[in-house]
Structures are given as structure tokens and as C-alpha cells.
Design a protein around this nucleic acid. Structure first.
Lengths: 118, 118
DNA sequence: ACAACACTGAACTATATGGTTCAGTATATA
DNA sequence: TATATACTGAACCATATAGTTCAGTGTTGT
């Protein structure tokens, strides 16, 4: 069994940081597509589109397969699980932080000038 | 009322694509911090850390405030809502896509020639 | 055989990132 | 007042991105 090194979040978040690439994922969500059709859809040269697809591929978000002269792109099995998990975990941190702040504000408003050192 | 243009997902995903910056968010989730303390934590020059914080600030993920000579960084109120929403919506697309594939595979298998090509 | 098609690779541009050093400015402290 | 602290800005470096053009290669259709 070949060990699959999961592309780190670096690659997937970087891949998602471009609107064209998010659009590609969007489009592939509704059906597989060739490089040419993607290039048409986003008004871009074939070469330019190929680079975007490569970025998505490196991130594991898209897989491609060449049959004859056509390379077909589809969403990767990996999905967005790891990314969703990171975001959710940290969303909780954000909220916890604001709850802590609210407490401090409440304490200050109570009138007690005790150091709100959080 | 000043119109606040929400930083697009481009900026936040790009901000999250670096492990150091994800680490900063992690750290700020447990308490506010100065540039110096962050630079220490990540073994980096002050100037380098300041750039990271600026990237996070532009993305709206972190806010800073300078008091005296110390700039304190904390998590931004904006949170990760928009990012979570994008990820979740597209996670569903990924899964729907695989369900569609499974159906096709089932159909093929009904017909006999079982190419396990997935 | 030959033209059209789909992709690929190299090379080039402009800009951004991730980091540094070095030289400041402003603030706190002894 | 002098010194240390905390940050800031400019300049530099190497690499990556986002895009292009141009010149191929290999495949399909007539």
C-alpha cells in the first residue's frame, strides 16, 4: 500500500484563494469538464487554465485523466474535510474569545476596575 | 455610516494558506498578543511577524491596536463565517458528485463488465 | 495524407509572499 | 538624561502566481 501524504492545508487554502479556482470547483461540482471547456468558461487561454488545474491537483482538490487528446477534470475524493475541520475548530476559538471579552466588558461595567488581563 | 467592504475570500484563504499565520490565529484564540511575543513564539524577526499580522489584518481575521509602544493583536470580530459557509456549501457539491458517480458505477456493475475504475 | 483539435512546455511579464538586515522613531524606565 | 524596548519602513533576495505568447506533440476526423 502506497503511503499517501496528504497535501497540507497550505496547498488547499492557497488553491482556494483565487476566485477562478473556486469557480472551477463550483463548475466541477455540476459535472466533469475538459481543460478547453474550463478555459472557455473563464475566458482564459488553455495554458492559463492548465496552470489553475495543476494548482488544484497539487492540492488534491481535483483529479484529472487524459483520454485521447482530452484531459478530463473532476473533483478529488479528498474533498474539503480537513479544511472544514480547521475552519470549524477555529471558528469556535473566535467565538470563545468574544465571549471572554464580553465578560470583561461586563465586569468593567459593573464598576470593578479589576484588571481584565486575558 | 462608513461602508465596510468585506474582504473577499481571496484574502482570507490566502491568509490561511500559511502555517505560521494559522498558528498565529491559534495563539490569538487563547489570548491577545503583541508583535514581539508572536515573533518570539514563531522564532521570527519582528519585521517578518509584522508582515504576517498585516496579511491577517487585511483579511479582517485579526485587528490590532497600538497603545504606547506596544501593538496588541486580537482576533477580528468577522470570524470565519464566510469561509465556513463557502467550504460547507462546496463540501456538499463534492459529496453529491461522488453519489452521482456511485450511481453510474452501480449501473455499470448491473450490466456485468465490472471495471473498478474510480 | 492532412487539417483541425486538445493539450503541453518554455519563456517572459508583472506582482505578491516570506523572509532577511539595517536604520530609524517613539515610548518607557532607571 | 540616557538607555533599552517595541515597533516601523525601506531595501533587498528568492520563489511563487497569474497571466500571456509561441512553438511544439499527439489524436481525431475527412
Amino acid at each position: 500500500m502506497v503511503q499517501y501524504i496528504a497535501p497540507p492545508l497550505d496547498l488547499s487554502f492557497a488553491a482556494l484563494s483565487d476566485a477562478t479556482r473556486r469557480g472551477i470547483i463550483d463548475l466541477l461540482g455540476h459535472g466533469d469538464a475538459s481543460i478547453t471547456s474550463l478555459a472557455d468558461a473563464f475566458q482564459m487561454t488553455l495554458t492559463g487554465m492548465k496552470k489553475h488545474v495543476q494548482v488544484l491537483e497539487r492540492a488534491g482538490l481535483v483529479v484529472t485523466q487524459k483520454v485521447g487528446r482530452v484531459r478530463t477534470c473532476r473533483l478529488g475524493k479528498r474533498g474539503l474535510k480537513a479544511e472544514a475541520e480547521w475552519i470549524e475548530a477555529h471558528r469556535k476559538l473566535f467565538e470563545a474569545r468574544f465571549d471572554a471579552l464580553d465578560e470583561i466588558i461586563n465586569e468593567i461595567q459593573q464598576g470593578g476596575s479589576d484588571e481584565g488581563a486575558v
